[in-house]
């Protein structure tokens, strides 16, 4: 690993100041993506700004009808949170199936969405639920946040501080996991709020996306059978050694039907 200077600020403003003061400085959250990429020299920052010393960046709370999750909240803590289990069980279930237990003990929601891996799980929940991503300087709608593979609307030096989830009437996430890494080969999050249905797909393309045809069909009838005559276009989907794009297109529809069935009868 390339040498770097290590900083551990105790406030968001101090972290933002450090990131602004140094060229080639990056925030460190759980390190479950950043450390492996530094080992492979895909990343070589000169300054690491560790966010783990900032009190108040982790934890789960309700603000009116909105579930607020601090950026530094670990996957394992979202999975086992009584509040998340009661208010948004689909999100707890998603968090409990990220990677393995040791990854879940370190990885954070802020790191996951800032990283925007095309096969990551959280981006599907954030996009399907229409969450807001709160940073040190503004609030960004999920629809505007995820740009492309490993690319988000975050400016250099901008820090995610929390994610605000409006509560749906029904929601579920279903993924077909790569058996080695547990990343999604295809993952579908469905969320129904009133008559509106939002569906986000991860793992299948270069970044998470909303599946318009599936949303339209489910807004007319929120039943797995509503998706029987629908397919998604394979031409824009990823193909790799694990799955070609036709297979991924097929998996998306299967995961979507299963997610709807799960949303209708959670438990």
């Amino acid at each position: 690993m390339k040498p770097f200077a290590y900083h551990k600020p105790d406030s968001v403003s101090a972290a933002v100041a450090l990131l602004a003061a140094h060229a080639n400085a990056v925030p460190l959250a759980g390190g479950m993506t950043l450390v492996p990429t530094m080992k492979q020299r895909l990343a070589g920052p000169d300054h690491i700004v560790d966010l783990s010393g900032i009190a108040g960046l982790s934890g789960v709370s309700m603000d009116g009808g909105t579930l607020v999750i601090g950026a530094s909240t670990r996957h394992a803590d979202v999975a086992s949170s009584e509040l998340v289990l009661a208010k948004l069980p689909a999100l707890a279930r998603l968090a409990g199936r990220i990677g393995d237990q040791q990854v879940r003990h370190r990885g954070t929601i802020g790191g996951s969405i800032a990283n925007n891996d095309p096969a990551a799980d959280y981006p599907a929940a954030v996009l399907a639920l229409g969450a807001d991503i709160v940073t040190d300087r503004r609030s960004i709608r999920a629809d505007d946040f995820f740009i492309d593979m490993f690319e988000t609307a975050l400016e250099p030096g901008e820090i995610v501080t929390s994610v605000r989830f409006p509560l749906p009437d029904a929601a579920a996430y279903c993924k077909f996991a790569n058996p080695a890494s547990r990343y999604a080969l295809a993952g579908v999050f469905v969320a129904k709020t009133g008559d509106a249905v939002r569906v986000a797909v991860t793992g299948a393309a270069s970044a998470v996306f909303r599946a318009g045809d599936i949303e339209t069909a489910l807004s007319e009838s929120f039943e797995p059978s509503a998706l029987e005559r629908i397919s998604i276009d394979a031409s824009g989907l990823m193909a790799d050694i694990h799955a070609d794009s036709e297979y991924r297109a097929q998996l998306v529809m299967v995961m979507a039907r299963r997610a709807v069935a799960m949303a209708l009868s959670p438990g």
Binding site: Y6, K8, V35, P36, D50, S52, Q102, V103, R106
Partner: peptide, 19 residues
């Protein structure tokens, strides 16, 4: 490489020493 840090199992090959 799993060890316990504050009672929780973590992968020590993916933790920076200062952490």
């Amino acid at each position: 490489c799993v060890v316990h840090v504050n009672g929780k199992s973590v992968k020590s090959c993916t933790l920076l020493a200062p952490a």
